[in-house]
Computed example of a mutant assay.
Amino acid sequence: MMISLATLMIISSCKAQNTGSNDINKNMERTTERFDTSTYYMERQGHEYQFEHYLRGKVRQFGGNNGSNYIEYAKKEKDLFGTYKEYYNRTATLKLVGKYYYNDFDCGIWKEYDENGYLIDEYDQDAPYKNYPWEKVEKFVKEELKLDLFDKNVSIRRYVSDKTNIPVWIIHYKVGSNIVSIKINANTGEIIKKGTNPIIK
């Protein structure tokens, strides 16, 4: 009886240890990426440093003054999406990384790391818009509105309404001397508002 009891205790103890180690392994993702402070301070003009990178495209870096974090935006000329990175000021280690749409919204999976490089948070910026994702907005803009997404007179934003908690897409584009605005409910894909306003000069 005592032997059976002791065996059961050992087995349950092993299971508890295994479960704990699995939880730790989930959070063991680590980055060693660091901001190149020496090049930044040597090459920057004024308060920022811009350069072309063969893989990342046009890179813009700024920050680091008065204890502020270092910020980097990188996007290829013919890409709609770029990469945002933020680095801790004290250690120059990567703090935050994610994708952004070149006009005005964050997208995809964003990751946050502590100053030792360990992953502390991960969130999906696209989650509220899964019923009417970017691909459907892109198709609507290109095929129905016949607009060029690279046109500076076309902008797309998105947000979750504070009042209704409904995720919405907003498309703005210029027609003559007017701005057309279309608001789409991202839960249903329905156009909930469309209006035209004159451009105020």
Rank of each mutant, 00 (worst) to 15 (best):
K78P: 01
G67V: 11
F51D: 06
V97L: 03
I120T: 05
T93S: 15
D36Y: 07
D124P: 03
T91D: 08
R44G: 12
R44L: 14
H47K: 12
N103C: 02
N131L: 12
I71E: 09
I71L: 13
R34D: 00
N66H: 04
E29I: 02
K85C: 09
F51Q: 05
T32C: 03
E33Q: 10
R44K: 15
A74V: 08
G64P: 07
Q45M: 08
Q125A: 12
G46M: 03
Y129K: 00
Y88D: 10
A92W: 06
M42K: 15
Y88G: 11
T93Y: 05
T39V: 00
Y87F: 14
Y113L: 02
F62Y: 12
L94Q: 03
E77N: 12
M28V: 04
Y100L: 04
G108I: 03
E52R: 06
M28G: 10
W110E: 00
K111S: 08
T32S: 14
L80Q: 09
Y84Q: 05
S38P: 00
A92D: 15
G117Y: 04
D104G: 15
K95I: 02
Y123V: 12
Q45W: 04
K58P: 00
Y54N: 08
T93Q: 12
K78Y: 06
I120G: 01
D79T: 06
D104C: 11
A74Q: 15
Y123T: 08
T39M: 01
G46S: 10
G46A: 07
Y129M: 00
D114C: 02
D114E: 01
E115L: 05
Q61C: 15
R34N: 03
Y40H: 11
W110M: 06
N65Q: 15
Y113G: 09
N65W: 11
D106V: 07
Q61W: 05
E112W: 06
Y84G: 03
L119A: 08
K76N: 14
D79Q: 14
N103I: 03
D79N: 13
D121V: 01
Y73D: 10
Y102D: 14
R34P: 00
K76C: 02
P128G: 01
T83I: 10
H47M: 14
G82K: 13
E86D: 08
T83D: 02
G108K: 06
E29L: 00
S68N: 15
R56Q: 13
T91C: 12
Y88Q: 11
I71M: 11
Y113E: 06
R60P: 01
K130H: 09
T32H: 07
F35Y: 04
D36C: 08
G67A: 14
N89Q: 13
G98W: 03
T83N: 10
Y41T: 09
E115G: 04
G46W: 04
K130E: 13
R34K: 09
E77S: 15
Y70M: 06
V97E: 12
T93W: 04
Y118Q: 07
L94W: 11
E122F: 03
N131W: 02
W110S: 05
T31Y: 00
T39I: 01
D36M: 08
M28Q: 14
N66T: 01
Y132L: 11
L80K: 07
S68P: 05
Y40I: 01
